[in-house]
Simulated assay, not measured.
Amino acid sequence: MAQLDDEQTQEIIALAMNYARSGDTPELLEFFDHGLPLDVQDGEGNTALMLAAYHGHADTVRALIERGADVDLRNQRDQSPIAGAVFKGEDEIVRLLRAAGADLDAGTPSARATAEMFNKTDLLD
Rank of each mutant, 00 (worst) to 15 (best):
M1L: 09
M1I: 09
M1C: 09
Q3E: 09
D5Y: 10
E7D: 12
Q8E: 12
T9E: 12
T9F: 10
A14R: 01
A14G: 02
A14F: 02
L15Y: 06
M17N: 01
N18R: 10
R21W: 04
D24G: 07
T25Y: 00
T25C: 03
T25Q: 05
T25A: 09
E27M: 06
F31V: 01
D33C: 03
D33T: 02
D33H: 03
H34Q: 15
P37G: 04
D42P: 06
D42M: 04
G43P: 02
N46K: 08
N46W: 08
T47Q: 04
L49D: 01
M50W: 15
M50I: 09
M50R: 06
L51Q: 15
A52L: 01
Y54L: 11
T60Y: 00
T60A: 07
I65N: 07
I65W: 10
I65C: 07
E66I: 02
A69W: 05
Q76T: 10
Q79T: 01
P81T: 07
P81H: 15
A83P: 09
A83D: 00
A83T: 11
G84L: 15
G84C: 11
F87W: 13
F87C: 00
E90I: 08
I93L: 14
I93D: 05
V94N: 14
L96G: 05
A99W: 04
A100P: 04
D103Y: 09
P109Y: 03
S110Y: 13
S110Q: 08
A111P: 13
R112G: 08
A113N: 12
T114E: 14
T114Y: 04
A115M: 12
A115T: 02
E116N: 08
M117D: 12
N119M: 09
D122K: 06
L123E: 12
L124M: 10
